[in-house]
Design a protein around this nucleic acid. Structure first.
Lengths: 274, 274
DNA sequence: TTGCTCCTCACGTCACGTGAGGTGGC
DNA sequence: TTGCTCCTCACGTCACGTGAGGTGGC
């Protein structure tokens, strides 16, 4: 009359029988009475309230040890400080998750912009390159000198380019106006370096690419558009930004014909096969 | 040159070495190369992007099996539907947690109302009682008849009351205007029942209590105030609402002297000892 | 030789759930 | 006797972390 079986108690508290046995094992909720002969657990009706409190805090993932401390708290202040500590942790976890979800959210919606984005996987390639840490001021002068040197080196080595000139830009270059840049010309295999040039492998990557026409005075607009697109609609990954110089001042002085590809590293479905 | 050790890869991806070995074991992220002699794992730089995607989705608790499916998704649509399913589940979990937190939040802040709330633990007691499922309309008539009958039964049994009259009200009585009510007078132990009366144990409970003075025409205001208080500042538990009739029409016709306690079941710190 | 990185078991953690094999009361 | 509830192990789950004991290259 005064106590109920574990099955009835489970129904009263919406806890499973297995869970109740577990709480007994760890001493969190010990049955009011245990039949010495059969081992049957019997719970007092007053324990329903305790069980409900346990359930409430387990619902918000409070660890059993903390729930135990909560139940034993001698004063409302002690009780509240336990709750407060857990709620604080939970809230910051929630905020992180919310932020991550927010970042994902727009990925799922198809892009609405009229920006022409191409997705491309570029394979790794050997290249003759110049790698230096540079600052944004004076960059175009450095850029021209470097490619002039690479072209000269190729000539003196008797090696042919197997693709357009390109560059790898550490993201710090944009965030802190200073970072490592690798300018390169793809070649068939390893070749000896001349002067500042060295032979190196340019790694494979998946890119979201936009094209920029004309001179580079307003290329930051293309960068902005691409960055926004990737942040909102792609799964971006760390790694250097790339540029491919399909047509540049190295080829013609007619600025209107210049054509630059900007590539942002992203993750594409099916890219798991390495 | 083209591959990195597990330690370097861990630093590049912010995943632990143990985690990377685990991902290898379960086939989620297999090193590009494994030294047959030493067993050393070597990762390709291109795998950094894959590792970052894994980390991003693990950060929002996507199970490894789903991450695996995500990486293998043949199309963006397939990829997005996996993400969408997980995000949906996550969001509803978030909402639940938010709701639970909201309910807890006000518990932590001290009550600002001027309502006089007493917290009291009442012990279990035997009682002579009438228990019936009743509707709110006509309740006061039923109430008076029931207590008149209990008092008569006590007289005929030659038993003395050991406390004030009381009542237990199933919460459905308030939410659906119909529910079980137990009206009782505490007595020393089990006594035989007469007429509708039966002997029963009134369970122990923890209560938040307000007092209501005068006749019951405006007792719903006291109920409202108490209910609000409990919802905002206490850890409420399921169980019947109680009333104790310290002074009622059973004792005097002077309504101004009537005094009713209303008790709401709550959880109090230190109540774990049963 | 020392220190550092890497390796492989085997077991621990957390909060239960699953399942086998068996008992007891109506 | 059947069905139902209860019991106790022992092991599984999930995503790793811990720790012991050992190897290999500079």
């Amino acid at each position: 009359m005064r106590t109920v079986s574990i099955g009835d108690f489970a129904r009263m508290t919406h806890l499973s029988v297995k869970t109740l046995r577990h709480y007994h094992d760890v001493g969190l909720l010990v049955p009011a009475e245990i039949d010495a002969a059969t081992g049957y657990r019997y719970y007092a009706r007053a324990q329903v309230a305790v069980a409900q409190v346990i359930r409430r805090f387990r619902d918000i993932d409070m660890p059993l040890d903390e729930v135990r401390a909560l139940l034993a708290a001698p004063t409302p202040d002690a009780r509240n400080s336990i709750i407060r500590a857990h709620v604080g942790r939970l809230r910051s976890k929630l905020d992180e998750t919310q932020a991550s979800l927010g970042a994902l959210h727009t990925i799922l919606d198809p892009p609405t912009s009229s920006l022409e984005i191409e997705h491309r996987r570029v394979e790794e390639t050997w290249a003759l390159a110049i790698a230096e840490t540079v600052s944004l001021p004076g960059f175009s002068t450095w850029w021209l000198a470097a490619f002039t040197e690479i072209r000269a080196a190729l000539g003196s080595l008797g090696v042919k380019a197997t693709g357009p000139e390109g560059g790898l830009f550490e993201t710090e270059l944009f965030s802190e106006e200073r970072g490592e840049v690798v300018l390169f010309v793809p070649v068939r295999g390893r070749v000896g370096g001349v002067g500042r040039t060295t032979s190196r492998v340019i790694p494979a990557t998946e890119l979201a690419i936009v094209r920029h026409h004309g001179n580079h005075s307003d290329i930051d607009r293309a960068y902005g558009a691409l960055g926004t697109h990737v942040a909102e609609h792609e799964i971006g990954v760390e790694g250097p930004i790339r540029e491919h110089y399909l047509c540049s001042r190295l080829a013609t002085t007619d600025e209107s014909r210049w054509l630059t590809e900007i590539g942002w590293p992203i993750f594409q479905s099916g890219a798991a096969r390495v």
